[in-house]
Design a protein around this nucleic acid. Sequence first.
RNA 1: GGAACCGUGGUGUAGUUUGGUUAACACGCCGGCCUGUCAAGCCGGAGAUCGCGGGUUCAAGUCCCGUCGGUUCCGCCA
Length: 584
Amino acid sequence: MRSHTCGELREENKGEKVTLMGWVGRQRDHGGIIFIDLRDRYGMTQIVFNPSADAVYATGKSLRGEFVVAVTGVVEKRPDNMVNDNLTTGQIEVVAETVEILNVAKTPPFEIDDNVEVSEEIRLKYRYLDMRRSQMQHNLIMRHKMAQLTRRYFDRNGFIEIETPMLMRSTPEGARDYLVPSRVHHGRFYALPQSPQTYKQLLMVSGFDRYFQIVKCFRDEDLRADRQPEFTQVDVELSFVTQEEVLNLVEPLMAEYMDQLLGNNLELPIQRMTFAEAMEKYGTDKPDLRFGMQLVELSDLVENCDFKVFTDCIQNKGAVKGICFAGGAKYSRKQQDVLTAFARQGGARGLVIIKIAGTDWQGNLTKFFNSATRQNIIERMQAKDGDLLLIVADQRQVTNEALGDLRLRIAGEEGLQKDDCYAFLWVTDFPLLEYDDEEGRFVARHHPFTSPKDEDLQWLNSDPGRVRAKAYDLVLNGTEIAGGSIRIFKKDMQQEMFKLLNISDEEANNKFGFLMEAFEYGAPPHGGIAFGFDRMAMLFAGRKSIRDVIAFPKTSSAISLMDGAPSAVDSKQLQELGVKLATE
RNA sequence: GGAACCGUGGUGUAGUUUGGUUAACACGCCGGCCUGUCAAGCCGGAGAUCGCGGGUUCAAGUCCCGUCGGUUCCGCCA
């Protein structure tokens, strides 16, 4: 049908007779000569209609935005001063000889143009039009390249891609499951996978010692800018590996993404940090390393000062720490109050703000600290004239998290998080368990199949909260983009873990019996990792929401504005499934 | 489950603080003029019961209550 796409003609094609097909973009009608931009996903080509060509000129004049047309004509080099350098085809234009209108189009609800702002609500309702815009085309093409690169990478490294079921058993731990009622077995339900975790472990038992899959996962939890109820993971599992080997497998893949998608060089190895260090220095388990402003320990320096808030805190085994906000003295009293309110909102009892003027502190807090203490603090925090010291005194975890949040907030306000900067980081040695106040028991921080660190096994029963896991996260610019662990592969250890999690033998057997039984038939040691594919695509495309890299995303209330999912269903359908709606 | 911000022609916004005559601007759309534009230019026109429901008032886009929808955040997300 077409001889070329709208993005491929160049000066060398001069004189060729071509047929292009695409959508009518902007039209520039000069009364005599008419130009139209013919668009497809490859680019844009200018079509020229000359008044001397009667028949085709009339058709050209009748064209409207988003009509689908086939244009046949001759490629001509544009006059020298008419070349458009913003267009890859800007050297040439096609002089129309015949035009066929393949389909007419209503005036679209918004212009198909990256420069026109459209609310996300309208974009999602007319997603098929939104995706005609070059920004979305670029995002989805990049996502495609990522997927292909990923497949090639794992294939080259001996991995087998194996599909696992979408209809599986509901599991007790973790996120809320999406449930699918069984028609054949009334009262029973499948769950959509939160991840193929158990399947990939079983594949290891089967001997597929290097497995990967680009796979949809489902979690029925509330949404965020970087969270959709259905999302894509690159799921990876290996047998006979150490944590070190998993990390080393992932790093060159990240370097390839950076190189092939962005043309950036990623220096390997990727920096590493333990969970404990991340919390102490950045107040979060996913530090954004695009900027500094580390948390600084001050407890030892203020132990004997006259400021009761600090000394009381230390006596209660809390921590006094601070961050240095370079140039922060420019903040008004009002802005400072907002920071204080923000810290309180994050759970801190308060926020101490000290202005540095010249080489000393300024303000009425100065009197509680002798000169030596003030200088020691300035020195340790590397504070300069015009800086602001933000100090929190509270329980250590509260102090860390409050300062970590403040650090991010200030970075946001000051524009320290550059979009074109890519700071990767491994965070390792996560706690195995976390105490859940609501449930009154320990829960797995990663998942219940994560192996404890060998040297911490001694505390498994006496001090479970102290046990670290063979678990690791990959962080990019403050966003977790991958997480994994070395797994438990022995039945008795897995049983012990369930016991720690307060899952009864009966429940464990009922829900995970198949896995534990499999472990009895020669399960190899194994471990793996899973990548948040949408999040990576979002970061590489420089977008703020994963909706921009998903073709048909849901809104923040988990609705599809285009097709109206979820919807009510016929009572006949419910009847077949043996499902009755509860009524209030 | 909670909080904040937002909802005004097809699109994006102004107007809401302080209620008052015909709801303004840009883009788009339609028509006219125009033979080298490329976000073409110039002239003209159509197009909005201000998300929905209720209330206060002589009078509501504007104030109050409720509701629906969008976005962001907290909780949640092994």
